[in-house]
Nucleic acid binder design. Sequence first.
DNA 1: CAGAAAGTTGCAAAAAATGGAACTGCGGTT
DNA 2: AACCGCAGTTCCATTTTTTGCAACTTTCTG
Lengths: 252, 252
Amino acid sequence: MSILNSAAAVLRCFGAECTELTVMDTVEKLGIPKSNASRLLRAMRDAGLLETIGQTKRFRPGVLVLDAAISYRRSSSLVERAAEAVAKISTATGHTGYVSKLIDTEVAAVTDHPGTHSLRVVSNIGRRLTAHGSGTGRALLALLSDDEVRALFADGIVPPSDLSPQSIDEVLERLAEVRRTGVSFSAQESTRGVDALSVAVRDPETGEAVALCIVWPAALATEEDRKTIETMLLDGAAEVSAALGDRTLRKR
Amino acid sequence: MSILNSAAAVLRCFGAECTELTVMDTVEKLGIPKSNASRLLRAMRDAGLLETIGQTKRFRPGVLVLDAAISYRRSSSLVERAAEAVAKISTATGHTGYVSKLIDTEVAAVTDHPGTHSLRVVSNIGRRLTAHGSGTGRALLALLSDDEVRALFADGIVPPSDLSPQSIDEVLERLAEVRRTGVSFSAQESTRGVDALSVAVRDPETGEAVALCIVWPAALATEEDRKTIETMLLDGAAEVSAALGDRTLRKR
DNA sequence: CAGAAAGTTGCAAAAAATGGAACTGCGGTT
DNA sequence: AACCGCAGTTCCATTTTTTGCAACTTTCTG
């Protein structure tokens, strides 16, 4: 395996449950000899991908990673605008919101907007969900054709919970509903006690797609609240879409 | 040069003025043969460090980088707490604020908090300043001893502006003043028309240091306003310091 | 549709990473 | 104070990757 992939694997270790690494952590997580782990971490630090915490022997991502991440948002007007729209809804409702993307067959949050309610869903950005087994994922899958979805899950699916679709055919049924209503609702599917509503938007110019998503404690919102969130999400998505459409027109 | 350093160099290209890269951009910026640039970008994409924009041949940082950056913010309670303190001051005064760190001989902003005044200093996170030639930098340098500072700039300094210290000795004079007052003031030094006030804090446990910094249009603040900001910064820094101190005590 | 520019691939030489074992440094123990 | 165990580092021959050039293919552009 090239050192680049090892480096990427190291970066992948950092997530919700792991914020720093030692040489031995790396040995265990990647299953490589510790001589390599030692050199790998040092090389990554020298390159700026990692930094040592104070004068300890523990490592965490470096500032270089931070700068690049900031640049990411700017590089995509789709993500940028989607983040603004979600931030607005998050502030208005007090619930936590995300902007997410499809990465192969998984969903990854790209920006998060923590809610303000005292009982709120804690932001767990970095956690990956299966595309077929999450509301956000199905919002994004609904942009594809049934054939494309079948091709994507050619190896079959493993439903992450009893509440998720149990077969490709069930997934497609749910997708049909998403296409009809424009929104994807998920009731306590990925996280117990948490409902989520997602709407997908595609940038007509680049083909890139993201989902706007609001999550809330199921106990906290009435049917009416849900309707309100749905309207705000659809309006937000429409605004994003309009802004991107305008841009496309302007360029021609 | 190892591919890891090349990869880091690619990530370094992304910044305020560059949000996406092509093979030829990479060739020019890094001065490498285009065969390598081509393979490097592809390898980085396969590793998840980059992603292609839509179906074009342009690249930007990948989600992996994003996730790692989020983890970075979480991992450093010093940065997190400092960010909270700066956010509070930023909101109260309407001015833009930063949390910054020393990276070798430069200063890099780690989080930003855009102000709310209609005339505000626009956040330029990612921009690097020389440590000796910026108020924030000197706030951080003041934590070191004179000998350490001399060692750091053993190769001599290049003053970024006429208003900056022109020699190591002048830098040390300014540092002495910073140590005496606890704050570092810079009048229109790094950016014309912009004043800045910075205070450094060190985590007693890890030795890590950051600076809290508030910047404002010089024309907009009276001497009294400056005093207010100074007090808020010192209070904020004291709070952060206390929080970290408490944590250390609790652990023992 | 020709010509140019951007991007990709093949190949041998050069550079790097690898893994095992030996070594260092540090805190705790007898 | 010598010893032990553990985390981390260094050494070195072997294996693997990377490099740069040139030839090739694809994609723009006029």
